[in-house]
């Protein structure tokens, strides 16, 4: 199984946006155009996250997913504001393959088991927004980095997987949008705690960063603004992964 290269598209309403440390949003354009371009350039997976859905409910996400699935034939993981089996059903029907759940899982961990039992563990991605508290300690945040939960990231990852999550998406709030590289200590800590694939997100900036994330135990890496702004191509990222 080769390490996966994932294009992450953060969505607000109908738009692709890019935030810096999850604040200061900037509209980039129509997510479909970007998704289509990444598919044609050979991306392994797409990750759509509706970053305001947990606050205001999902508005356009299902539509964005359905439009994308018309012409994009690689897997899509979709997250943001998913609270129930009904929400998951709707997104899967629209063309999603996996759902990423953060806020609703923290509020009600049994949702993880419900989704895993109904659709299989392979469909249930535990999305964790991690903020460092001290060296080697991270806290789980929800509502797109706005609310702290009091949960320890590594403990929560372990519990989520025990409940049935088949993959862990870990986003470093500290690194997101900073181009300072992935938080490899965070990746290492989670990869050592669970026996499911780990997706590292947040912080890609330079050539060695992907190999460092994979070396720390990530099975997949998600890249967002470097791709959206055209600072790097998928081909170049793919080559950078070879060094892992």
């Amino acid at each position: 199984m080769s390490a996966r290269l994932i294009a992450r598209l953060d969505i607000k309403g109908p738009n692709l946006i890019k935030g810096v440390q999850m604040e200061g949003l900037r509209v980039m354009g129509d997510p479909y155009d970007f998704a289509r371009r990444y598919y044609e350039a050979g991306v392994d997976e797409l990750l759509y996250i509706d970053i305001v859905a947990s606050l205001y409910g999902r508005s356009k996400l299902t539509e964005v997913v359905r439009r994308t699935a018309q012409d994009v034939f690689v897997p899509m993981t979709v997250g943001g504001g998913i609270r129930s089996i009904e929400d998951v059903t709707e997104l899967l029907r629209a063309g999603a393959d996996k759902v990423a759940i953060n806020t609703a899982a923290v509020a009600r961990p049994d949702l993880i088991a419900e989704v895993a039992n109904r659709f299989g563990s392979q469909c249930m991605v535990l999305s964790i927004e991690a903020k460092q508290q001290a060296p080697g300690t991270w806290e789980v945040y929800t509502e797109t980095g706005r609310e702290h939960s009091g949960l320890d990231v590594v403990e929560w990852a372990r519990r989520g997987v025990a409940l049935g999550a088949g993959e862990v998406l870990v986003t470093s709030i500290d690194r997101e949008g900073t181009r300072k590289g992935f938080d490899t200590d965070l990746i290492k800590a989670i990869a050592a705690a669970v026996e499911v694939p780990v997706i590292a997100s947040g912080g890609y900036g330079a050539a060695g960063d992907l190999a460092a994330a994979l070396g720390a135990g990530a099975d997949a890496v998600a890249v967002a603004d470097a791709l959206h702004y055209g600072r790097v191509t998928l081909d170049a990222l793919r080559q950078q992964m070879q060094g892992a």
Partner: peptide, 10 residues
């Protein structure tokens, strides 16, 4: 130890 589910391109 293998990570499962097996996810990705092969």
């Amino acid at each position: 130890r293998r990570k499962l589910p097996s996810i990705g391109w092969a």
